[in-house]
């Protein structure tokens, strides 16, 4: 009974969840906080672009074509006389949308496939994983191109394409985590207390696979933005005059000599964004590593 006494002293201390612990560890790493900072700034601009941007991103003044950066036009103007700075800010919104939605698609499909393969195993596992192998055999951008070509070029279709291209990654990660979590005794306990398969998967298995999925999702948002920008650059994603970084690059590519700023800044924005998500993802991976528990 001495344990009870001991615990009473403890009761006023933090009752902290596993996630809080992980977040504290994340806070300690400077690079991942830098990544988080970039991502938060990006989200801020994505939400408040209409209030922050000094000019209209779509309507330009042709008399002001290819103006060098100045106090009025921070990043200069492009071939249509549009403010590059405003367009880059609006582009943040589109890029965040692309990242979140396409990774969302990949997550839903990937988790479903991975769970079926990992939990039921046998012939289902065989069919699902061989299908995933086939998808992995295609170069990603080629597969995305093919999908967009079938669906027709538009931003939404580009998101769908990028989402589908990223399904195999998630399917494999989810499958392997399910395989390892499934062996735990608490899953056996769940069977013995009468849980249905659905309850076992959603209550006992998936919450315990969340860490690797979260890390992969963060890292994939970065690559998804890059892939979507690539599709837009090829004219298969965002359609002009939409302010999307990839299509801005494509539009201004021809004027690289006259107006390098109209190419440089969108490219720079893509780079910083992807870097931010990668740093955050790497930090999360370290923070969620169960071996690092204090």
């Amino acid at each position: 009974m001495e344990e009870k006494v001991e615990l009473k002293d403890e009761v006023n201390h933090e009752v902290q969840s596993l996630w809080l612990n992980a977040f504290k560890r994340l806070m300690k790493s400077k690079t991942s906080m830098f990544g988080l900072f970039i991502v938060l700034v990006l989200i801020f601009f994505a939400i408040f672009a209409p209030f922050v941007a000094p000019h209209d991103p779509i309507a330009g003044q042709l008399s002001l074509r290819h103006d060098a950066p100045s106090a009025e036009y921070l990043f200069g103007t492009d071939s249509q006389g549009r403010d590059v700075f405003s367009r880059v800010l609006y582009g943040a919104k589109i890029s965040i949308e692309i990242g979140v939605i396409s990774v969302g698609i990949a997550l839903v499909l990937g988790i479903t496939m991975g769970v079926f393969a990992g939990y039921y195993g046998g012939i289902i596992d065989m069919i699902v994983m061989r299908f995933v192998d086939i998808m992995l055999a295609f170069p990603t951008i080629l597969l995305a191109l093919a999908i967009v070509t079938i669906l027709g070029p538009s931003l939404v279709n580009a998101m769908i394409a990028v989402g589908i291209v990223n399904v195999p990654k998630f399917a494999r990660i989810v499958r392997s985590s399910v395989l390892s979590v499934k062996e735990n005794e608490y899953v056996e306990a769940a069977i013995s207390i009468g849980c249905t398969d659905f309850q076992i998967i959603t209550r006992h298995i998936l919450p315990n696979c969340l860490a690797p999925i979260l890390v992969q999702a963060t890292l994939t948002i970065g690559t998804a933005i890059l892939e979507a920008a690539g599709l837009s650059f090829l004219g298969l994603g965002a359609q002009p005059p939409m302010a999307e970084w990839g299509s801005m690059l494509a539009d201004s590519r021809g004027y690289m000599r006259q107006a390098p700023w109209s190419v440089m800044y969108p490219g720079f924005a893509i780079m910083i964004t992807v870097l931010g998500f990668n740093l955050l993802g790497d930090g999360l991976r370290d923070a969620l590593d169960p071996r690092l528990k204090e």
């Binding site: 596993l18 735990n184 005794e185 608490y186 056996e188 306990a189 769940a190 209550r203 006992h204 919450p207 315990n208």
Partner: peptide
């Protein structure tokens, strides 16, 4: 094993 038989979440 009391460490493996309870769901940590």
């Amino acid at each position: 094993d009391p460490f493996a038989s309870l769901n940590p979440r």
